[in-house]
Design a protein around this nucleic acid. Structure first.
Length: 278
DNA sequence: ACACTATGCTTAG
DNA sequence: TAAGCCTAGTGTG
């Protein structure tokens, strides 16, 4: 499911499966002008935060995809599958150019052909993306320091930081013992740098494993003598959707509240002004 | 079978 | 702040 790591993994998978290959392109559901790509050769795909761009050889335009809350873009071997459900965009590459493969896009918020100028405009409104090597965490820190909004709200603001979603927000704040309601202006540079570095590491693991894993080795189920969780959010997490359950570290029940119409999860024991980072 | 939820974001008011 | 987008999985009866 789509936080930034999902999009970066998807970009890599699409590039591996389709770059340099001639594709068939269609919109079984009919809501995307997929015919413009039919018979063309794809270039590499790239992710910026939660946005995906699929390039096409010999033309300046690209396909811009945003999965939104429940979009999915799934690759499966083979090129002759029956269409199941509402497929906005189907890409296939046949056995003639390598391993046959199909990619089906369902339920995206955005799937459109965009000009280079439009690509630049999307990227321009995004903050630094921890998964991009050229990202500048200082840009995000400058935004934090100018804001009285809670750090938890700022971490989800894609113009402050690109690619972080509700799970990474909750988990990163937990791992650094930061009170989610701390105003951005009160975050010191050392704390910010630690959170940023941690997001870079956590999200890279997310890309590799294609799931979110945030629990340190010493708190993993094997080390704690508890059964593994392994739910559909990924592997092990500390607080995300664990409200009411005891914190893995201090035993305090995990709390939840609404913040800007999004659910926020945190441990009141580990994440307060006088707590030491777990 | 139906109801509810969800890792997101935009627009209207 | 609320509604809308539009899919899939889970829970309830």
């Amino acid at each position: 499911m789509p936080e930034g790591h999902t999009l970066h993994r998807l970009a890599a998978d699409l590039t591996e499966a389709f770059a340099g290959r001639r594709v068939r392109s269609s919109s079984p559901q009919g809501r995307f002008a997929a015919g413009r790509l039919d018979g063309r050769t794809l270039g590499p795909s790239e992710a910026w935060g939660k946005h995906l761009f699929v390039t096409v050889e010999d033309v300046p335009w690209q396909v811009h995809v945003h999965l939104g809350l429940y979009g999915s873009f799934r690759l499966t071997p083979g090129s002759r599958h029956a269409v199941v459900g509402q497929v906005r965009w189907r890409l296939t590459a046949s056995a003639r150019s390598g391993a046959p493969v199909t990619a089906d896009l369902r339920g995206p918020t955005v799937c459109e052909i965009v000009t280079p100028g439009e690509v630049d405009a999307v990227i321009a409104r995004l903050g630094p993306d921890p998964l991009r090597a050229d990202a500048d965490p200082g840009r995000a820190f400058a935004r934090l320091r100018r804001s009285t909004r809670p750090i938890a709200a700022l971490l989800l603001d894609q113009s402050v930081l690109a690619g972080v979603g509700n799970v990474y927000r909750a988990e990163a704040l937990f791992r650094h013992g930061v009170d989610p309601m701390l105003p951005g202006s009160a975050v010191d540079l050392a704390t910010w740098q630690a959170i940023w570095d941690d997001l870079v590491a956590l999200m890279r693991v997310g890309v590799e494993r294609n799931r979110i894993d945030t629990v340190r080795p010493e708190h993993e189920p094997e080390a704690m003598g508890r059964p593994p969780r392994e739910d559909d959010h990924g592997g092990e997490v500390y607080v995300y959707r664990r409200d009411g359950m005891p914190c893995w570290v201090c035993g305090t029940p995990v709390a939840t509240t609404d913040l800007d119409s999004r659910r926020l999860f945190w441990c009141p024991g580990c994440q307060c002004a006088d707590s030491v980072a777990p």
